[in-house]
Design a protein around this nucleic acid. Structure first.
Lengths: 239, 239
DNA sequence: CGCAATCTTGAATCATTTCAACATAAGTGG
DNA sequence: CCACTTATGTTGAAATGATTCAAGATTGCG
């Protein structure tokens, strides 16, 4: 059930059978959410964290004028709100982009892990730090890259993160998002997403059609994005 | 010596005398860095974390064309690279903006804390999650706010963070940064920083002269920035 | 005091937004 | 299963916020 979490974990660290068991035991419930459900609201008190097993989610913040900025996309294997364990409430909302299967992990169970499994605790801490690294790379995109490069970068990042949990092959991956969703990630207008996708398509880098990303030339795409995956911490090592 | 750290910690949590002692004991060395020193390089193996006691620092990433994006500013009381404890290397550089006094905390000492002081560990974890919350708010600024609001938001954030450690009063604070430094935070050109500062000044919101921020009308400034400090998690509670 | 860094302003250019119209795809009820 | 409605995607033209380039003014430092 929590296989994508284990895939993500084992990709970067050694996890003992005992630790795996502790993580499994921490899950109180597995459930399904429909698409377009905001299941964590800003400032809401949280007593559990939500791991994503299947589907696509995002963290976002809205401004008063109705504009939205997505701060991170979540793929299977991610905790969408592990940071709520120490923050207790969040500064952003979390919503499903597609129907999702999730595992709920009560904070009291995480507390038990921090008391009994120091190494596993550090792996969980690592995951929240990995989210922060992704935020930083998005800051670079939003602050310094033009529209085409921002989109290219998002597609490169997802290719890597989805490969880890077996949701992408060399050709590309399913991405059930609209161009408007992408515009809220990239900090540009939906119209400009459309024009920028056309640029990537006509350059022969990438195609995004029928909710599927097809990578036509990965090298060219990564060059367009100035993509360097080292911020995703893909090396295996004991944390 | 580590007083700013304790001020930051006690502002948001209860910390026992024993925990305070554990944190003090974790410091291996206190030293001074000159201004404009990049003391953590991207991908460098790190065996200790650096707490800032006095001065101003930033985390940044450079692109190939030489453009720089600052991803976070650090004030006294912050750990500049606590996340290196689980990440082992960082995806960004860290540099001093002014002469700084720092405390070094070896990772082995942090390991001991995670094994012996679960609550203090969660407070440290909380701090890395607070950095991530700041990253998210900067993503919103960079993705959705115009130049004037981005700068106003930075000034509002610093006012709050510096007040916590007694480095700001109601009037404002010392900010020994150039307009070019600010441009690297806000994702705009130095020229446009200059024009935007003029807008804030002429609106009677804020003045930035002689490396000092003077807040002329805090309400107006916060409205210009659409600033809501809840992402800084100012409430006191047990983590 | 003098040089280098930083700040300031203007004018031309450029990337992105806005507004608008139309095309295509997807979803729903008869 | 089709007809209708709504959501999503596409393109063009005008407007706008930010950049670029350039020149001059001010400040800080050795």
């Amino acid at each position: 059930m929590i296989e994508p979490l284990l895939m993500k974990m084992r990709r970067r660290d050694d996890v003992s059978a005992e630790e795996e068991q502790a993580l499994r035991a921490a899950v109180s419930e597995v459930k399904d959410y429909p698409a377009d459900l905001t299941f964590v609201r800003r400032n809401q008190e949280l007593a559990h964290s939500t791991a994503l097993l299947e589907g696509l989610m995002c963290r976002y913040k809205d401004l008063r004028n109705g504009e939205r900025q997505v701060t991170e996309l979540h793929v299977p294997g991610d905790f969408a709100d592990l940071h709520s364990f120490t923050l207790k409430r969040l500064d952003h909302e979390v919503m499903t982009l597609t129907p999702c299967k999730v595992a709920l992990v009560p904070h009291e169970n995480l507390s038990r892990i921090t008391e009994q499994y120091p190494h596993l605790s550090r792996v969980l801490w690592f995951w929240t730090n990995l989210d922060a690294a992704i935020h930083r790379e998005w800051e670079v995109s939003l602050g310094r890259r033009d529209a085409v490069a921002r989109l290219a970068h998002i597609f490169c990042e997802l290719q890597v993160r989805l490969e880890i949990v077996g949701r992408a092959n060399a050709d590309g991956y399913e991405l059930p998002m609209t161009q408007t969703d992408l515009s809220e990630c990239a900090g540009i207008t939906p119209v400009h997403v459309n024009r920028s996708l056309k640029v990537l398509r006509e350059a022969g880098s990438l195609e995004f059609r029928n909710r599927r990303v097809t990578i036509l030339d990965r090298d060219k795409l990564e060059r367009a994005a100035e993509f360097d995956p080292s911020y995703l911490y893909l090396e295996r090592r004991r944390r």
